[in-house]
């Protein structure tokens, strides 16, 4: 299965991926309307430390500890992708407590968790963060 992988040394720390994530998941087509003046809650986050920058989002782990720990069965595998069913989720945050990447988080509207679904849950259909990364610091491909 294709996943998002990080090429740390190419990351400029521009945070564009965070904006592109927020835009894709706003379900709007006008970027200005989607983002201007808004606090964004992207599912990808860039960490910055001196010269080092990298983006982190859900790794879609093989035997994902979030899926194993979810109290409601809201997290499951869909063809290898770790999917969240926010309709089932009760927002207990057990998944947040166990994800070793800090890649699943409370949704801004409260009451449920949110995570990267590789843009299968929005209009873009393929990871919008990767598509707009100018330096190939994140890529979407098959790896072992």
């Amino acid at each position: 299965m294709k996943r998002i992988y990080v090429n740390e040394k190419w990351c400029l720390g521009c945070h564009l991926c965070e904006y592109e994530c927020a835009f894709a998941n706003s379900h709007l087509t006008d970027m200005v309307k989607a983002l201007k003046g808004k606090v964004i809650h992207p599912k990808i986050r860039v960490e910055d430390g001196g010269d080092v920058h990298f983006a982190v989002n859900c790794r879609h782990c093989t035997d994902a500890v979030c899926v194993r720990s979810c109290i409601s069965g809201a997290l499951s595998f869909e063809d290898g992708m770790v999917a969240i069913d926010q309709n089932k989720c009760v927002g207990c945050l057990t998944c947040v407590l166990v994800c070793p990447f800090g890649a699943i988080m409370p949704a801004p509207e409260g009451g449920v968790a949110q995570k990267c679904m590789l843009c299968t849950d929005n209009l873009t259909g393929e990871p919008n963060c990767v598509r707009h990364c100018i330096n190939n610091a994140i890529v979407y491909e098959e790896r072992d």
Partner: peptide, 20 residues
């Protein structure tokens, strides 16, 4: 702040650049 920056670059390469 809990973050992956606090780990070694080698650890991050293991975890972020490969299938886990």
């Amino acid at each position: 702040d809990p973050g992956l920056m606090a780990f070694s670059a080698a650890y991050r390469e293991q975890k972020l650049a490969r299938r886990v």
